[in-house]
Amino acid sequence: MLVEKQVPLQPYNSFGIAARAQRFARIRTEADLRSLMVRPDWALTPRFVLGGGSNLVITGDIKALVLRVEIAGRRLVEESEKGWLVEAGAGENWHAFVAWTLDQGWPGLENMALIPGTVGAAPVQNIGAYGVELQDRFHSLDAIDLVSGEVFTLDAAQCGFGYRDSVFKHIAADNQSFGLAGRALITRVRFWLPKPWKPVLGYLDLERKMAETGIAAPDARQIFDWVVAIRRAKLPDPAVIGNAGSFFKNPTVTPEQCADIIARDPKVVHYPMDDGSVKLAAGWLIDACGWKGKTLGHAGVYEKQALVLVNKGDAEHPCTGGEVMTLAKAIQTSVYERFGIRLEPEPVVI
């Protein structure tokens, strides 16, 4: 198993931050990982699992061994009258996988089209968009314990899904708690796509598309196309402008807190939730504080969507992770001072 040295990480993070991995290994099969784990120094080697790098802010060179997950493969595990069970390797591109499922006639993931990253990273973040979260379609996953080397399988309950959260983002504090951050490498993920298919359309942007096109009963392919068009209109292409997608989580507040904000800012974008709380649009809060289009160093706020921070650097003056986090903290301070709400970043910061 080849371990590369001093590998530039700019191509492996969608923000395009310049940094290096002191050691870098490509994991294309379970055997690749096991060949590393039998090395005498494995137990003493710090490790960092890297997927598509689309939800990542790198603040300096990475000293840990970077395990770049490139496990491929897509297949239908089984089909029944109730639905389809579909599996993909952790290294598969998420959007390409969504498109492939529709090409096979297996709808259900269309609302999550064009989310950057890999299949293996999707459950870590519990990705979601336009009314559907990964946990709504998740069945199970396989992973390898990076300490014991054992292969294990987790269902949805064991993954501890929350809003942009899972057990893979938490470290076990003691023997009584369960956290897998830095402990596991996901190899394959399975999704349950139920029959009969039902469209999820209760989102403002999709409702606007229905009104614009006059299509009141879109099929899954139509929803897929709409979501792609919406995201491309709002979000920059990482291949053109480096970014990590939505940088902050949409905060949730009590109805009383929301009413207080509405009294001061009637145009605040908000969505009532099933549990009685109210979700606020973080992008609207940031925009209301005047950050859209502003820059700080070589990091900036996207002029079309305040929720997205972008790379304003170039080859001579590259954007650093430190600049990104300085901008993020300034935005958090502004939003807190005006609305009393603390915004929480979505990306992993390393």
Rank of each mutant, 00 (worst) to 15 (best):
K82S: 12
S277E: 03
P40F: 10
R34Q: 14
R74D: 10
G51Q: 10
I58C: 02
V301K: 14
T153R: 15
T295E: 11
D237S: 02
V268A: 08
T187A: 14
I223R: 03
P196F: 11
A172P: 05
P194A: 13
L85V: 12
D260H: 13
Y12I: 08
G179T: 10
R34C: 04
R23C: 12
A31M: 02
N243C: 07
V77E: 12
K267G: 00
Q6A: 07
R208C: 00
I17L: 15
P196S: 08
W84M: 07
S246N: 07
I286Q: 00
V268R: 04
L141F: 10
E30P: 05
A157E: 12
S166E: 13
L76M: 13
V335S: 09
V49H: 04
F97M: 05
D205P: 01
W42K: 09
L50A: 01
T101F: 07
E133W: 07
G321E: 05
E150L: 06
V228C: 12
L114G: 02
M325N: 08
A122G: 11
K63H: 15
K198R: 15
V66M: 01
A64D: 09
P40N: 04
Y163C: 06
P123G: 11
A173G: 11
G214W: 00
N243V: 01
L9P: 06
D260T: 15
P8K: 06
A259E: 15
F15E: 02
A21Y: 07
E150M: 05
E70D: 15
F168D: 06
V38E: 14
R190V: 03
M210A: 13
E92P: 01
I230A: 03
